[in-house]
Amino acid sequence: MANSAGSKKRARQAEKHRQHNASMRSMARTYLKKVTKAIEAGDTEGAKAAYQVAIPVLDRAADKGLFHKNKAARHKSRLNAAIKNLAVAA
């Protein structure tokens, strides 16, 4: 347990940051799931709209260090490819 005033404050800040990061990470995952769900349903327009909303959320999460930038890029690339395949198949 923290003993000095400074270490107590640091412990409070760390907990606050942990909760905020967990919330942002969860939000990013939710937006990814919305795109995936639209792709699985075969809804090209809905998938495109959800993708456009998800991209800035993913980029912001990567900029803040919640995800590695390559992980965000990988998700974006795979989702975009799936949407393109959906459009071609339709």
Rank of each mutant, 00 (worst) to 15 (best):
A2T: 04
N3F: 10
S4L: 14
S4P: 00
A5R: 03
G6R: 05
S7W: 04
S7C: 01
K8V: 06
K9I: 15
A11D: 12
R12Y: 06
A14M: 09
A14G: 06
E15G: 13
K16L: 11
H17Y: 09
H17K: 13
H17Q: 15
H17C: 01
Q19S: 08
Q19F: 03
Q19M: 05
M24S: 13
R25N: 04
R25C: 01
S26F: 12
S26G: 11
S26V: 06
M27C: 04
A28R: 10
A28S: 15
A28Y: 11
T30Y: 02
L32V: 08
K33M: 15
K34V: 07
T36I: 08
A38P: 12
I39W: 00
E40I: 08
A41M: 01
G42P: 00
T44C: 11
E45R: 13
A47G: 00
K48E: 13
K48P: 06
A49K: 08
A50Y: 01
Q52M: 08
V53P: 01
V53E: 14
I55V: 12
I55R: 06
P56I: 06
P56N: 02
V57F: 00
A62V: 01
D63E: 09
K64T: 04
G65C: 08
G65S: 01
F67S: 01
H68I: 04
K69A: 05
K69D: 01
K71T: 07
A73F: 02
A73S: 08
H75T: 12
K76G: 02
K76F: 03
S77F: 07
R78A: 13
L79I: 07
N80P: 05
A82I: 07
I83G: 02
K84C: 00
N85I: 10
N85Q: 13
L86D: 04
L86G: 08
V88F: 14
A89V: 01
